[in-house]
Design a protein around this nucleic acid. Structure first.
Lengths: 190, 190
DNA sequence: GGAAAGAGTGAGTGTACAGTCACTCATATG
DNA sequence: CATATGAGTGACTGTACACTCACTCTTTCC
């Protein structure tokens, strides 16, 4: 049979996945709803039946992105044997590096930061960073300074990946990328 | 007299200024050439006489942005009395905080990072960060690790300003914004 | 004065895109 | 079978935007 119907509630998360992938490539303004629809394998008209607007679709993708980030941090923290605050933060960093190996989740955050003039997106981004910061803080028990440093190097990681500096050979690029955990070197999760 | 002609070479840098302001608000895709033209007080047709394309206009604005950043770092380094590597880096940080007090230069960098799928913009951004990193490194004489940290906290600063966390009261926001030099507290340049 | 060069614009053109609508088809249930 | 519900779409609309072009007005220089 040509058609395989599923329910809207089943379809929505799949469209969110497609939205993460599509928006990660070209950002909020640079990506069309038709792009997302194509990635999801449905018509764009149906995307608008599942989500009220492009804006809400992006917000849904961003929320899902932070769900995964927090989940990864939690799993990283779970897996480490070094239970000192710094040890836990370090394990979270490793888990994050592994999570973002396909770049989509990372680029989505970068693109969201560039769409903060849309109030709903700004709010979602704040929500997301609030969750990440609070989780890193309470789960690790690290000092505020250590948590701040953790996030700062996370942001540096975004820059490094965005500019593709992991494979660059220029000295300045190596300075910035030093020790940034490349997916290939990421510690196994289990 | 109604009209006050100036030469194209005089006009171009003014349009660059306008482009920095306009693109800073809504990013590369979210800003129209008409927005830039309005900011510059000329017609959009003339913007296209002065710059070959919107893309080149954005690249011009981005290059000018990094000119100013490097200039500010240099002036900051010049002004400090603490000539240790860390002292110089710190002075540069203060100068940067002051420079970005109007947010335009900061937001332009954020938006550029979200437009890296445009090759020319990606190249300009790499050029810019190369200049900043190399300058910070050679001018301060600091270790690679210290320079990396300098840039990492610069990126954190971008996040803090983008999300407006300087004035936020939530604990997580204070954790991220702690010690980020707010323009109001920036050290005087001279 | 007059001609050349350049500053600057109004009015377009072609295209792309968010969102809508009327519709078709599949499935479920009595 | 009949009818209702909901999945899913093709074709459309209105608008916005990058870029062009033919044109006018100003300045300069002989």
């Amino acid at each position: 049979m040509r058609t395989k119907l599923s329910t809207a509630d089943e379809r929505r998360p799949l469209v969110i996945d497609a939205a993460i992938a599509a928006f990660a490539l070209t950002g909020y303004r640079g990506t069309t709803v038709a792009d997302v629809a194509a990635e999801a394998g449905i018509s764009s008209a149906y995307v608008f039946k599942l989500f009220p607007s492009k804006e809400q679709l992006f917000v849904g993708a961003l929320d899902a992105c932070f769900d995964r980030v927090v989940g990864a941090l939690g799993r990283g923290a779970e897996a480490t044997t070094d239970h000192t605050p710094d040890g836990v933060l370090d394990a979270m960093g490793g888990a994050y590096a592994e999570l973002i190996s396909d770049r989509s989740l990372l680029m989505l955050q970068v693109h969201a930061q560039s769409a903060v003039e849309v109030p709903e997106i700004s709010a979602a981004l704040r929500r997301g960073y609030a969750r990440v910061t609070e989780f890193a803080s309470t789960r690790s028990g690290a000092t505020d300074a250590a948590v701040q440093r953790f996030i700062a190097f996370g942001q540096l990681c975004h820059l490094v990946v965005t500019l593709g500096l992991e494979e660059a050979t220029e000295p300045w690029a190596k300075t910035l990328a030093a020790g940034i955990r490349h997916p290939a070197f990421a510690a196994p999760t289990a």
